[in-house]
Amino acid sequence: MFFLVFFAGSAAAESCLAPQPPFVPGDPQAAREYRDIIRSDFEVYIRDIEAYFRCLDDERARAFKEAREVSEAYGRFLKVIEP
């Protein structure tokens, strides 16, 4: 039972990947030349970082639930092996 709870929970774990920050060229002329692309990159980053934060929140909640279930399974296991 312990292994079922552990492995079932592990399979559900989500990978949260942080987005890469947008690149802004140091050259003001290049920044002006590519402003539309850079602006879009910032907007995509902001959208993606918000999704990343939601993913971290969801993963944290999932991990706490899994830890509680494993702890309960461990308690049941200890009761079974106690003399």
Rank of each mutant, 00 (worst) to 15 (best):
A30F: 06
R47N: 13
A13Y: 08
Q29H: 08
F2G: 09
D36F: 10
E50L: 08
M1E: 13
D41I: 00
V24F: 05
F77I: 09
E33M: 09
V5Y: 06
C55R: 00
G9P: 03
M1C: 09
R60H: 07
D27Q: 07
S71V: 05
F53C: 05
L78F: 07
E82Y: 09
A30Y: 10
S15N: 03
A67N: 12
F3W: 13
E59A: 15
A12Q: 14
I46L: 11
S10V: 05
A12D: 12
L78V: 06
D27H: 11
I49K: 08
I81Q: 05
P28R: 04
A31Q: 14
A67E: 11
S71P: 01
I37A: 03
G26A: 08
F6E: 07
E50I: 01
S10D: 05
A31N: 06
V5K: 11
G75Y: 04
V80L: 12
F53Y: 11
G9R: 00
G26M: 12
D41H: 03
S15M: 04
D27P: 00
A13K: 13
R32K: 05
R35P: 03
L4S: 14
P22Y: 01
L4E: 15
L17W: 02
G75N: 06
F7Q: 09
F42E: 12
I37R: 15
P22A: 02
A8V: 13
F53P: 00
K79C: 09
P19D: 08
V44A: 14
E69D: 11
E66Q: 15
Q20R: 08
F42A: 02
G26Q: 14
L4G: 05
I38K: 01
F23C: 00
L56K: 09
R68A: 09
R35D: 06
G26F: 10
R35T: 02
A30K: 02
A8Y: 12
P19K: 01
G75D: 14
L17G: 08
R68Q: 10
V24Q: 07
I37L: 11
S15C: 04
F64L: 11
R35N: 04
D48A: 13
V70A: 10
P28F: 00
E14S: 12
C16W: 06
D57T: 07
A11W: 14
P28M: 02
G9T: 10
R76K: 03
A12P: 04
V70Y: 07
V70Q: 14
R54E: 13
P25I: 00
I38H: 01
F64Y: 10
V70D: 08
Y52L: 06
I81M: 07
A18H: 09
P83A: 06
I38M: 08
Y52I: 02
F7G: 01
E82D: 15
I37N: 02
R39L: 13
F42M: 01
